[in-house]
Structures are given as structure tokens and as C-alpha cells.
Amino acid sequence: MSTLIIIDQPPYGSWDGREALDMAFSLAAFDQPVSLLFCGAGVNWLRKGQDAAKVQQKSIERNLSAAPIFGVEALLADSDACGRYGLAESDLLEHAIITDFGPELTNRFDHVAFAG
């Protein structure tokens, strides 16, 4: 069973997204195919150059970079949202792919769930 987890909340503001990331890691740990889609303000999770030391948090960029190692299949970014936030693929962390959020994408997964 394949799962798509959608994160549409901005990084650092709440713990919902972090919990979704934990869920993705847990599915990957049990070799369940899982991908993450970032849309809305969520695309800011993928922006390169984050330094969260002064807000006393771990860098989401660095946490996310472990996803491919743990077996998360894809880090997807909605193209409309990337446009709104001025993000080109070169601004995104390695492995992130810009794609279109819509039925064509969601139909490829058995289970689609939003974070939070």
C-alpha cells in the first residue's frame, strides 16, 4: 500500500508537520512506500539555507535530507506554490521534485493524508 503525506503548513510554526515527517519515517522503516508532497506554505520546508539554531530548533532542511536515506520515495513540491514563494528547483534541497498537485498525482497512491 502506497501513501502520500501532504504537508501544507509552513515550517517551524507548529509541530503538525514534524509529526507527519515522523509518520513518513515510520512507514519507511517498515518498507511501506511513502512519499511527501509539500503545497501551500508547506513548500518552504524545502528551501535551502535554513539555520534554526537561534530559534532553538533543529533545521527542517537537515532533518528532511535524511528522508531518502530512510527510504522515503519522493519529496514533491507543488509547482503553483513554488511559483508563489519564488522557489525554483535550484532553490530546493537535493532530491526535491517540482510537480503538479492534482488527481493525476493523488491517483497514484492508495492512501493520501494531510498533516495536522
Binding site: 515522523d22 519515517f25 515510520s26 519507511a28 522503516a29 517498515f30 533543529k58 533545521s59 537537515r62 532533518n63 535530507s65 535524511a66 536515506i69 530512510f70 527510504g71
Partner: peptide, 22 residues
């Protein structure tokens, strides 16, 4: 090195094994 790069420890045994395998 893993912690320095990703700011997390592998969260579980299974993911520890995966990271070492990688």
C-alpha cells in the same frame, strides 16, 4: 557524521540499520 548532517539520530532500530546499510 550522520547527526551533524541531519540533526537527528536515526529514530529507530530499523532506520539505524537502513542508514548503516546505505
Amino acid at each position: 557524521v550522520f547527526y551533524k548532517q541531519h540533526e537527528i539520530s536515526p529514530p529507530s532500530n530499523r532506520l539505524f540499520v537502513k542508514a548503516v546499510k546505505e
